[in-house]
């Protein structure tokens, strides 16, 4: 092992960055699941968001428009998931699986038919999101090197985690979202529109997952790659479970998974590469996710009505 000031600092820098992408998608998962809709389509929404961000940025040269497009794309996929699972009471896991297939197919289809590219789409001359450098924080010793300069999405992810916490636990809307996910019939009885709250939760999850995709493609990277999401949508869901469906718990879980991804990315730098081939190290984040869930999940109980379609007539 090669642990010194430089490698640990680099490792933690990568960890914060990776965690942020997971966190954005994870916050989306919280909104959706708290409202009672299981969303395993986060993966597809990240993929679609990543593609739309690059596509719109190439055309307009405005990266923030790219981010907006990614959010809209995520929201549209989420709306589809919502209509299928809320209006038509489809099985939510199946609907989510289909959206993941659709997103993979649609992004490649559009890439081929609009840009005539296969496999990946580079930003080339178009600018990506430029990093934010935060005054005061960047001047701190050591911490400044880890937290001082990042893509805007990284900072926004952690701010949004706090906002989500406030919304969910300290506003009437948050109470409604939680009520709809725990006991939709009771919520309906006191006059909450169950369907509307569920659509809101699902669409918010699409906006956030789409944003996560854009952070991946034009914030941290500068290209869209097929399979870019690489299971991050599912790891984010695992983080939601690990974090007991709370924003702050999910944030902690995302940091853990972020570290595991960072260990994998910087395995050569850390000197692990000479003992374990890097292709095998690639399994590390997934193994950590499984171990975390196995050691913990028995005591983690999700929203009671999550995954169950709500039927007004069935009381």
């Amino acid at each position: 092992m090669n642990l010194n000031y430089v490698t640990i600092t680099t490792l933690l820098f990568f960890a914060v960055r990776s965690a942020a992408v997971l966190l954005l998608a994870g916050l989306g998962g919280i909104f959706s699941e708290r409202a009672g809709v299981v969303n395993i389509a986060l993966e597809g929404m990240i993929t679609m968001g990543a593609f739309m961000a690059v596509a719109v940025t190439i055309v307009t040269h405005q990266p923030w428009l790219g981010v907006l497009a990614a959010m809209i794309a995520g929201a549209l996929l989420a709306a589809l998931h919502g209509v299928l699972s809320i209006r038509f009471k489809a099985n939510q896991v199946i609907s989510g699986t289909a959206i993941n297939i659709l997103a993979a197919g649609l992004s490649s289809f559009l890439m081929k038919s609009i840009f005539d590219q296969g496999g990946h789409l580079l930003l080339e001359k178009a600018p990506g999101l430029s990093d934010w450098s935060i005054p005061f924080i960047r001047d701190l010793p050591w911490l400044g090197e880890i937290l001082g300069q990042h893509s805007p999405g990284v900072y926004l992810a952690f701010i949004l985690a706090l906002v989500t916490h406030l919304v969910l636990f300290h506003t009437p809307l948050g109470l409604r979202i939680r009520a709809v996910g725990e006991h939709p019939h009771a919520a309906d009885t006191v006059g909450i529109n169950v369907y509307r709250i569920r659509y809101l939760g699902v669409i918010l999850s699409g906006v956030l997952a789409g944003f996560a995709g854009s952070v991946l493609s034009i914030g941290i990277g500068s290209a869209f790659l097929e399979n870019m999401a690489a299971g991050r949508g599912f790891i984010a869901l695992a983080a939601v479970i690990f974090g007991k469906w709370t924003p702050l718990g999910t944030m902690a879980a995302c940091l853990l998974f972020g570290v595991s991804e960072a260990v994998q990315v910087s395995s050569n730098l850390l000197g692990i590469g000479q003992y374990i081939p890097s292709s095998l190290m690639a399994t590390f984040p997934y193994v950590i996710t499984m171990l975390a869930l196995a050691g913990f999940v028995g005591r983690s109980v999700g929203p009671a009505a999550s995954g169950q379609p709500y039927d007004v007539d069935q009381r």
Binding site: A90, A98, F109
Partner: peptide, 18 residues
């Protein structure tokens, strides 16, 4: 583009599921 097949597959699943 051959990915149109992927889109068809997803739509078939949508309609079966819903």
């Amino acid at each position: 583009p051959r990915q149109v097949i992927g889109i068809m597959q997803a739509c078939i699943i949508f309609f079966v599921a819903a």
